[in-house]
Design a protein around this nucleic acid. Sequence first.
DNA 1: CTGTTAGCGCGTTCAA
DNA 2: TTGAACGCGCTAACAG
Lengths: 335, 335
Amino acid sequence: MAGIDDVARRAGVSTATVSRALSGRGPVSAATRDRVRAAADALGYVVSASASSLATGRTRAVGVVVPFLDRWFFSTVLAGISDGLVRRGYDITLYSVSEDPAERRRVFDDHLRRQRIDAVITIALELDAAESAHLRGLGVPIVAIAGPNPLLTTLTVDDLAVGRLATAHLLDLGHRRIAHIGDDGAGSADTGSSVPALRRHGFVRSLADAGVDDAWVEAADFTIEGGSAAATRALTAAAPPTALFAASDEMAIGAILAARALGLRVPEDVSVIGVDGHELGRWFGLTTVDQFARGQGERAAAEVLDELDGAEPARGRGTLPFELVDRGSTAPPRA
Amino acid sequence: MAGIDDVARRAGVSTATVSRALSGRGPVSAATRDRVRAAADALGYVVSASASSLATGRTRAVGVVVPFLDRWFFSTVLAGISDGLVRRGYDITLYSVSEDPAERRRVFDDHLRRQRIDAVITIALELDAAESAHLRGLGVPIVAIAGPNPLLTTLTVDDLAVGRLATAHLLDLGHRRIAHIGDDGAGSADTGSSVPALRRHGFVRSLADAGVDDAWVEAADFTIEGGSAAATRALTAAAPPTALFAASDEMAIGAILAARALGLRVPEDVSVIGVDGHELGRWFGLTTVDQFARGQGERAAAEVLDELDGAEPARGRGTLPFELVDRGSTAPPRA
DNA sequence: CTGTTAGCGCGTTCAA
DNA sequence: TTGAACGCGCTAACAG
C-alpha cells in the first residue's frame, strides 16, 4: 500500500506538502496541490487512519452505543445517524451493550476508551452513574438520544408529553377504563426518568388530571409478544379496559393481534394506540404518536458534527418532535 | 489520559514490559504482570488504538458493509456478528452503502482503505468487479454473507435450493398456478447470481421439473409494501394464482395483508410462503424457509476470527442451513 | 525475564 | 509557499 512518501516522491515535493495538500490545512499553491492530488490518485493513496490519528488526535469516527441492534427503533435511528455521518466522511464504530454487567463494563471501561472515536452517540441507553462518568471521562462530545440523563447532553422527545398526548387522545374519545402496556415501575434500576417510565407517568398524570384514579398498568417488554401477552391479560380481566395505550408500536401491534385472537374488533370493541411511528403500524391501521426515529438519528449526527466543529454543546436538552398520527385504531368506547 | 509510561513508572518497569504484560505477547513473570496490571487498573490505562495499530498493523476492528440498516434481515445478521465479535474484543466499524455510485465509490475507495480494520464482512451486497477488486486489494480476510460472489470467500445459503424447496412445498400440496413475488430479472446489474435471482431460478426450475411451463413472476422490492402491491396485482388478475411464493418474509406478509384486503382467506383461498424466518412471521402464521439470520452473523464472525487467527480461508463457499417452517399459511388449493 | 532502542506513518512546528 | 526534523504512543527486535 502506497504511503505518503511514495506520493511525495511522485509529485516531487516533501511529505509535509503532501499532507497539507490532501488535508487542506496549511498553505499550498494550487499548482502543487493539483500535482499532489494527481499523484495520490494514481497511486491509490489513502491516509492511514492510525498514523493520522496518532499525529492529530482526531479519528474521524463516531462511536454509537446501542442496547439492541435488531429492534426497529434502534436500527432505524442508526440508519439516520449513518446517513448523517457518512456524508461528512466519518466512520461509525458500533458498540452493542447487553444487560450483562461484565460485558457492559468491558465496553465502557475498555472499548470506548481506546481513543478510537471522536464522539459518542448513545441510543436509549439507561446509564448508571459510573457509566455516565466513564463517558464524560472520554473528553469527547456525547449526544444521548432518548435517554434523559441529567449528566449528559441529551436529545430526546418529551416522553412525559408523549404519554399525556396518547392518553388525552383516548380520554377525549370518552374512554375511562384505559390500560397502559409498558413499564410498570417494578424494574430494579428504574430511576423514574427512563423513557418507559416517563411515558407511564404521562399516562398516570393525564388520568389523574381527568379525575380517573385507577391507572391500570400491564407490564410488557416492548416486543410484539410482550404486548400481546399484556393485552391478553387486560382484555380477559373481569372488567376489561375499553382502550389500550402501549408504550411502543411493537407492543401495540401485539395488542391488536391479541384482541383479534380474542374475537374483539379494533377499534369497535377496544381502542389501541402506540408510540413510535413503526412502519408496520400502517398495515395495522395503528394510531400512534410518531417520534420520527430516522430523523432523531440524523439530528444526533448533525449535533455531534457541530460539536466536533467546535460548536458549544446544546445546553441541557435538545427537544425532538412528535406527532399524533390517527390511522383508525382508536374510536369512542361502545355505549 | 494515562499513557504507557505512567503505568511503567508506577509499576517500576519499562514501557516494553508494560506492553508485554498487558498484551500477553512475550514473556513476563507472573509477579511483574500482576504489578503492571494493578498499576494499569489504578490509572485506568487503556492502550491507545491508533498507537497500537500503527506499531502492530492490527486494529482489533472488523468492518461490516451493509446495503441497509433498517431492514430486518440486515439488522438481525448484524446483531449476530456483533455478538460474535464483541466477545473476542473486536470493535465493529459500520459501512452503510447505498446505490448511489459516488457514495459507493467513496466507501470502497476511501473509507474501507484507511487501514482501520483487520477484516471485512459484507452482508448481501452485490458487488461489481471493481468493488470486489478493491476489497481484495485490502489484503485482509473477507467474508461475504449471502452474496454468492466468485471473487470472494462467501458464506451463503443455497438460494437456488431455497427457491426449489419453497416451490416444491407448494407443488406437493397440489398447486399449479403459482406466482413468485420478488426479483423479475429485469434489473440492470443483475448477474443472475444474486440472491433474489437464485430464488427465482429455483422457482422456475422446480416448476419446469414438474412440467409446469408458466412461471409467473411479479416484481417487488422486498418490502411489505412491495409485496402487497405485487400480490394485489396477481390476485386480481383474470386467472389468479392459487399460491404465492414470496422471496422474503416481508413481502410474504405484504401478500397476506393484500389477500385479506381483497377478502381472501389464507390459506383457504390462497397459499403464501416466504423466505427468511422473520420474527413477525409467527404472528401471521406464515409458512417460510427459515435461514437463521442471526446465526449467519455469528457464523461469519467466527469465520473471520478464524482467519485472523491464521486459519486458511474456507475454500470456495461455506454453506448455511435453511429449513422449511410450516406455520399454516399454505394448504392444498381449493377443489 | 527485562530494558534499550528504533521505527510504525503521518502532522506539525520552525526555518528557509 | 515549501522542506527538514521531531514527536504522537506503542510494539518488536535485540541485548543483557
